[in-house]
Design a protein around this nucleic acid. Structure first.
Lengths: 252, 252
DNA sequence: GATCAGCCTTGACCTATGTCAAGAGGTGAC
DNA sequence: GTCACCTCTTGACATAGGTCAAGGCTGATC
């Protein structure tokens, strides 16, 4: 089977898994997502537009680089990653997508996705077909403002990520940002479970695997965090903030 | 004079310099900016909302970190930079703002600017007061889509900047991106004048001053670029692309 | 329960990049 | 003209972080 046929089969399989009949009204993370504080009538339209995927397997691709932008996806559960493969074939992780976050914003400019998006853990996404979403947004100032604010938040996070310089700054900043993005699922923000492997974190932070291990140990020794496997506890928030880059105070 | 009084005086001085009576209609870079392909009637409203600064001096501050978001600014001429100062007092440059680009997108999330914005060269900005802009956008799907596309472009550029790993990747990526952002002023894209100093570029690329010099020399020796002071000529576009990070092909 | 495959950590060593300092041009004030 | 100041380059050296390899741990499969 050629790559193209493979991709096609995959896409067909994926499509077969979508289910409708859900709604944003009772979604536990709707308050952090697109439908935030939408007037009832518009929320109903949004729910009608939207449909939900069946569970995505770990490692499954949601979109491929170059795919046309058909829809924006919101993470309903689990964790996904945007991945770009360079010349030498090694993956660089542009970013992670945690529950309630939107996938595909980067594709709006050109109309095509710029990177692969794969699941990190099993999960579900809500699908917002792009055209209907756009047309609803043009009738709903509230939805438009939510959209703009989400965009702005994404940009801010990227700024902070791009500014962080040293390895420990990057790790500290990353942990702080994740700790503020995960609570949206209802978890405590000083104790959370990282959904992704060390390898993925290292690829995201532009660090070698080993360096990341050492940096985690260093922050732990410095009394900022306590780590047990993927469970992270932030012991000293202020210290961690000071260890992070210049934008840590602003973004958080 | 206290810092606060100083800031106030500065703001008053700045306000005194705004002039109205301009319009986007005949703006040479309007085709790359917010008013792109707006219906005539809406373009007229936008022009009415907008006003233009008198020339900003080099080094002058446009906004300070923490300032409330009163307006979005579009660079009419010159170059500005978003600057964040870390614990140790050294400036990190989050990004540059070239003609036709929008300043303040990162402030939409919280309603407050996250960093200082200063001029790099003398220049002018167009001021779009935020509330009126928002209300116009909610009545103009075209304006809203421009806005979203601009947001998306910004995000993409940040992705590319954040993914670049080694010093030469970062420099190559930076040059490519600038070469595609500057032509909007009408310049050729394989020959352009960098508006900013090496020092600023180094601060933006998270590089030491000296390293940047050496990297420029290296790319030049490799036959990718030719540099004379701030004049850059891209000799081998493909080679430069290959030297840049994983997202170079997507973004460009 | 044994085997295997990933993940994570640790260690030894090496390279890219930072730090610091000197010097070469360019430019504006006087 | 000359002095002061700035930017840029270059060099010598130091160090953060990468590379590679080994070993421990855990979870899945049979």
């Amino acid at each position: 089977m050629s790559i193209r046929e493979n991709k096609l089969a995959e896409a067909v399989q994926r499509e077969a898994n979508w289910t409708s009949g859900h709604s944003c009204d009772h979604c536990p993370i709707g308050h952090y997502c697109l439908p935030l504080e939408l007037p009832a009538e518009q929320a109903a339209v949004l729910s009608k537009i939207m449909y939900v995927s069946r569970a995505l397997d770990a490692g499954q691709s949601l979109v491929h680089a170059g795919d046309p932008l058909d829809a924006l996806y919101a993470v309903r559960a689990g964790c996904l990653k945007s991945v770009s493969v360079d010349e030498n074939g090694n993956e660089q992780i542009i970013g992670f997508h945690l529950p309630s976050e939107l996938i595909g914003l980067d594709a709006i400019y050109s109309g095509f996705h710029s990177a692969d998006v794969k699941t990190v853990t099993i999960g579900k996404v809500c699908v917002f077909p792009y055209r209907p979403l756009l047309s609803l947004a043009s009738r709903s100032p509230e939805l438009m403002q939510n959209w703009l604010r989400i965009f702005s938040k994404n940009l801010l996070d990227q700024y902070a990520h791009g500014v962080d310089n040293t390895a420990d700054q990057r790790l500290a900043g990353f942990l702080l940002r994740v700790s503020l993005r995960l609570p949206m699922r209802g978890e405590l923000n000083d104790r959370f479970l990282l959904p992704m492997s060390r390898i993925d974190i290292a690829r995201h932070l532009r660090l070698a695997n080993g360096t990341l291990s050492r940096m985690i140990a260093r922050l732990q020794d410095a009394g900022m965090i306590r780590v047990d496997d993927r469970l992270v506890e932030i012991v000293d928030f202020d210290k961690l903030k000071r260890a992070a880059g210049a934008l840590a105070n602003v973004t958080l």
